[in-house]
Amino acid sequence: MTVPVFYSISDDFTKYAAVSLNSLVKHANPESDYTVYFLNQDLSAAHKQDLSNLGSKNVHVKFFEIDDELVAPIKNRKENFLRADFFTMSIFYRLFIPELFPQYDKVIYIDSDTIVNDDLAKLYQTELGNNLFGACTDSSIQDVEKMRQYIKKVLALDPKKYINSGMLVMNAKAFRDKHFIDHFLDLLEKYHFDCIAPDQDYLNEIGEGQILYLDPRWDAMPNEKTEALTNPGLIHYNLFFKPWHFKHVQYEDYFWQSAKETKFYSELKAELDHYTDQERADDREKLAHMLSKEDKTEQDPNNWARVKEREAVKL
């Protein structure tokens, strides 16, 4: 059995992805086989080599270039901005994995700002049944009132059931059988939903009622208001809690432990040392900017809640 694992990255995210990949390889069961794919559009040959060098006898590193034509319907427009701040096509790549890799009926997707702290083969053994995917509820937003309001009033979903898309166990066969990508592109073109977390909101809406909720240890996120989990299987440095920008981030030791084993360690330490207090303040302000979208989208006649009153958006 091969465990297929997917990342989606842009070239400037290589050093963080390298730290994540290194941690994945360290925790891989030597008795299992893994193929790790990096979905990309702009990875340099040098960075491909850097990532390939981190592979092992049973962890095979491969690259897949996303065709411009495939993602052409996803335009650089404000509705698709990540964190209401900037556009990055790579957040949408994960949605196309089942179509691009028909040889797999089940796959794991993880973001690049992660650390793997357990064997992903354990996660891959998850029985998905008829669900579209397995994921963890988004613990990073449970204490953010504005985000809870957005989920309730704009998305018309339960905040306690709103999942984070940084780790997915995808039922690739169900995605294909139920024509997920056609439905996604149809909704995208028809409504241009103004989203705080574009790919994540679409997954929550289209997957509603067909999501398997997984143990929170598989998507542990730094949080200033809750205690750290004692045995995180996967750590996801979500939003602005990046240990290469902030000091004293929850779970930061796991990141630096893996970073030390890569060629990017000194570069990452320098990035942390040179990141200014003003830049950190700006990052926190970006969170407020992201949440400011809630008031406007609540009044939008074509927000998720209102469209759902007229038609079904879930599969």
Rank of each mutant, 00 (worst) to 15 (best):
V116L: 09
M147N: 12
K263T: 14
M170V: 14
N131C: 06
T14G: 04
D194C: 00
E267A: 12
T35M: 10
E65I: 08
G233P: 08
D158V: 08
A17F: 05
I151E: 03
H47D: 14
I211M: 02
I66N: 06
L214G: 03
Q257S: 15
L100A: 01
Y7E: 06
L95F: 08
D118Q: 08
E69V: 08
I211C: 07
L203K: 00
S20F: 06
A156R: 13
T230P: 08
P73S: 03
D68K: 13
E294I: 09
Y16S: 07
N76P: 00
S8G: 07
G207I: 05
L24A: 06
L39V: 12
L100P: 06
E227M: 13
M221G: 04
K62R: 14
A17C: 10
S23R: 02
T226F: 12
K178G: 01
V307I: 15
N231K: 11
Y251T: 04
D201L: 03
I235R: 05
Q41P: 03
I211T: 08
Q278D: 15
W256P: 02
E311R: 09
P301L: 11
F240P: 03
L95H: 13
P243G: 12
F193Y: 12
L54Q: 05
M147E: 15
R217L: 11
E271S: 12
P222E: 10
D199V: 09
R306C: 00
L51K: 07
